[in-house]
């Protein structure tokens, strides 16, 4: 038996919105420690990894490890039926091919039950190495979203350059070029407004902006975003999911042919 009850159901709605454009089908892995998911986009350029720890749920029970094959489009449709203030409960029997979703309004006067068919998925899981990065940049998530959106009008690629002075995002295309520089700003009143840069070695990498724009669908989950980079390895874009977990997006760089 698997059962997970989340009082702040809007978090699950936001997580789903942050995943659905990148991943069409994914295996949601349920263990006693929590829910996790790892999936690549269809072109195998990016990978997303979600962790929601068991202790973040008001009630969590998982008697046996379960891999639920989920069509993300269907999951989105059903989660859209939940109100933003609803409590969401997920339930599945160990051998069932269905996931039950229950949405309770805050005062309990409305209870909706949905059932979603699960799929048999043969997902390839990749081992993500735990590594140190040359640069870690924390910045307001809405600023990162804005930069990605703005520069995607200029070109298809963004060059991210991180030095001790700051981080620079540049794009160029047929009509011209654009550059946005963010400098460290430790004086901001709110922690989410701070820009912090930790660097052991300067880094310059080039990425396809369309993937970064998809990652920014997670913006509403967290006030800040962390970018981790080292030369010649995938970029990590991490959003916290309150104090219960995270979504990490990995994006392979463009390399010289």
């Amino acid at each position: 038996m698997f059962e997970a009850r989340l009082v702040q159901g809007s978090l699950l709605k936001k997580v789903q919105e942050a995943l659905k454009d990148i991943v069409q089908e994914a295996s949601w892995d349920c263990t006693s420690s929590g829910l996790s998911l790892q999936a690549m986009d269809g072109s195998h350029v990016s990978l997303v990894q979600l962790t929601l720890r068991a202790d973040g749920f008001e009630k969590y029970r998982c008697d046996r490890n379960l891999a639920m094959g989920i069509n993300m489009g269907s999951m989105s449709k059903i989660l859209k039926c939940a109100g933003n203030d609803d409590v969401i409960t997920l339930k599945a029997e160990d051998t069932s091919d269905r996931l039950e979703l229950m949405f309770e309004s805050p005062k309990g006067e409305k209870i909706s039950n949905y059932e979603m068919k699960l799929m048999d998925l043969d997902c390839e899981q990749l081992g993500i190495p735990d590594q140190e990065y040359s640069c870690s940049i924390k910045m307001p998530s809405h600023e990162f979203a804005r930069i990605c959106r703005d520069l995607s009008q200029i070109g298809e690629c963004v060059v991210i350059t991180c030095t001790k002075d700051g981080v620079q995002f540049s794009a160029k295309g047929d009509m011209g070029s654009g550059t946005v520089k963010m400098s460290q700003n430790l004086g901001a009143e709110k922690e989410d407004d701070q820009v912090t840069i930790e660097m052991t070695e300067p880094v310059q990498l080039t990425f396809a902006i369309k993937y970064l724009n998809m990652f920014t669908k997670a913006t509403s989950l967290s006030g800040s975003v962390c970018l981790s980079m080292s030369n010649d390895v995938p970029l990590v874009v991490e959003y916290k999911v309150e104090d219960m977990g995270h979504i990490k997006y990995f994006l392979a760089p463009k390399i010289e042919d």
Partner: peptide
């Protein structure tokens, strides 16, 4: 000219 790398080139299969 830059070429898009695959994420699978960086992470090993489990």
């Amino acid at each position: 000219k830059n070429k898009q790398a695959s994420i699978m080139g960086f992470f090993s299969k489990k």
